[in-house]
């Protein structure tokens, strides 16, 4: 992690990320770094505020009216948006895949220490590392300020799942668990945090029938848990 202390390198990476010059696996690794580094996120946001105005240079194009109809319909139904698992393929996220429990612990340490030195005004992010009951780190999760949650497996969980679905829950102390969606056994899953789960303290994964818990509460064993930390 030492290399990333160089301010010039940090500035360059932030610029590369926003300009689009950074691609593929490098982009995902950088997102991992940002998850634990508020000042890096701050730099990226500053760049975005400047450069994203380029969007005005594209000739506007009126979307078909069915798009608004679909949006309006989904808002009226007031049901959670279908959670989609966009599998990102096998390449690229080798940082996470090769990430050992030691590194996961180091990440946790960074997450805990970092807020003391960082810009307090920076947007808070939430981070959690989920561990098995044997203390093995299996998932790293971060949630950004737009309400999107990124779940990365640290190793393949196919064997652990054994044909079951992995369902992620917010587990409020003394309250009922709230489903956050299904997580892919391998790679990255992106989820939208439901409004009802805005205050997350502890997360857990349970094994459920394919398609997820039929009852809306965990029905199978909870195979990993972790606390949510602000970074």
């Amino acid at each position: 992690m030492k290399t990333y202390a160089d301010p010039l390198l940090r500035a360059r990476l932030a610029a590369d990320y926003v300009s689009g010059a950074m691609r593929g696996g490098a982009r995902r690794r950088f997102e991992g770094l940002m998850a634990a580094d508020a000042s890096l996120r701050h730099q990226v946001r500053e760049w975005e505020n400047d450069l994203y105005l380029l969007v005005w240079t594209i000739p506007p194009r009126t979307p078909p009216s069915r798009v608004w109809r679909a949006i309006s319909k989904q808002i009226h139904q007031k049901v959670p948006v279908r959670i989609r698992n966009w599998s990102w393929g096998l390449g690229g996220i080798y940082l996470w895949r090769s990430c050992s429990a030691v590194l996961a612990a180091a990440l946790l340490a960074i997450v805990v220490i970092q807020p003391m030195r960082e810009n307090r005004s920076a947007q808070p992010q939430q981070v959690a590392v989920l561990q098995s009951s044997q203390g093995q780190a299996l998932l790293i999760i971060r949630a950004d300020a737009s309400g999107t949650m990124y779940v990365n497996t640290l190793e393949s969980l196919t064997k652990m799942a054994d044909g079951h679905a992995l369902e992620l829950w917010s587990m409020p102390p003394g309250g009922k668990p709230i489903s956050l969606g299904l997580v892919a056994t391998n790679g990255l899953t992106r989820l939208t945090i439901p409004q009802s789960a805005s205050n997350m303290k502890k997360l857990g994964i349970s094994l459920e029938p394919p398609g997820g818990s039929p009852s809306g509460l965990p029905t199978g064993p909870v195979v990993m848990t972790g606390d949510v930390l602000l970074s």
């Binding site: 969007v55 005005w56 594209i58 000739p59 506007p60 194009r61 009126t62 979307p63 798009v67 608004w68």
Partner: peptide
Amino acid sequence: SAPHLFAF
């Protein structure tokens, strides 16, 4: 904003 975001 949709016409701009859609074009983008």
